[in-house]
């Protein structure tokens, strides 16, 4: 039997995900057991029709992106979304609300992660995906070589939030209080939860697919691995969480104006909450509908 064919299809992306594949020997070993028919930089050529498996990297922003993604969904038996951009939008997804007119003829109306266009076989989030995610992806690709295909979408990220096993424990998890809102440059300490220090850390809503690398380095989570699966809009959820613990012991003293002053320190809530997930935000959907465009929602 002939080896199955594989296309690795970069949409709008930064290239780091590609690099992460190149650098993973085990994953490369599996990938090269396929007949690679398309992978810019590795196997040059046109994206043909007969594809058995596809790995899609990046967000769909240009018309060509959408066409390529649609084609892969149509043709390939196994469609892998590799990297946060393809699953949630990622950094290039921040262009979701930039009108096409400002970008040029080649662009579509909005940016959409290809994962929402149809039902993919595998979701492998991460910016770029971590070693454990890549390992599980290699296993799935191996199995597919044997003719085994997942019967429903497989999520390779961690289903738990960063808080679950965070190295920075709150002193008492029943009494977390954000004393106010602070920026990282104002100084962080490595002996307690960032939230308790007033640092806006997206850990509570973010999937722990990343080994807490940033937190170990003294940086709060910005959400790069995407939300914990099952949350309908992580940004809005996060507002609920922050609203619960911000100055929770001083509410009656500072009253509404005091709380508002503190919240005004969040200058760019959109950037904070949707740095990697903007195309999937409910408000993006609403904003697009209001412009007469189809909402870029889930499913």
């Amino acid at each position: 039997m002939e080896k199955p064919s594989l296309a690795i299809v970069p949409l709008t992306c930064c290239g780091a995900c590609m690099q992460s594949i190149y650098e993973d020997r085990e994953l490369m070993k599996t990938i090269t057991r396929y007949r690679i028919i398309y992978w810019p930089g590795y196997a040059e050529g046109e994206l043909g029709d007969a594809v058995d498996a596809a790995i899609i990297v990046g967000v769909a922003r240009t018309r060509r992106d959408y066409e390529a993604a649609e084609k892969m969904y149509r043709e390939a038996g196994l469609v892998v979304m590799y990297g946060t951009c393809s699953v949630y939008g990622g950094i290039p997804g921040l262009t979701a609300l930039v009108p096409r007119e400002e970008l040029g003829e080649d662009y579509a109306d909005t940016a959409k992660p290809p994962a929402v266009l149809r039902q993919p076989s595998v979701l492998a989030p991460g910016c770029p995906p971590s070693a454990s995610v890549r390992k599980r992806l290699a296993e799935i690709l191996e199995a597919y070589l044997r003719g085994e295909k997942p019967d429903k979408t497989v999520f390779l990220g961690n289903t738990e939030s960063l808080c679950r096993n965070c190295p920075l424990r709150p002193r008492d998890p029943g009494r977390i209080e954000m004393p106010g809102i602070k920026r990282v440059y104002e100084g962080v300490s490595m002996d307690k939860c960032f939230l308790e220090q007033g640092i806006l850390c997206l850990g509570p809503v973010t999937s722990a697919s990343c080994n807490h690398d940033c937190i170990r380095m003294g940086l709060p989570c910005t959400g790069c691995a995407g939300p914990v699966p099952g949350i309908d809009d992580a940004g809005l959820r996060y507002i609920g969480a922050i609203g619960s613990i911000l100055m929770v012991k001083r509410e009656r003293q500072v009253m509404f104006p005091g709380l508002a002053r503190e919240l005004d320190k969040i200058h760019d809530p959109m950037g904070l909450l949707y740095k990697y997930t903007l195309p999937r935000a409910k408000l993006t959907q609403l904003a697009l509908i209001r412009r007469g465009l189809a909402g870029g929602g889930e499913k």
Binding site: S161, C163, R164, G174, E177, P204, V248
Partner: peptide
């Protein structure tokens, strides 16, 4: 689904 972050417990007015 619970990850034990404690935000619920910290906000509960009745402990």
């Amino acid at each position: 689904r619970c990850d034990g972050c404690g935000i619920c417990a910290s906000t509960c007015p009745y402990e």
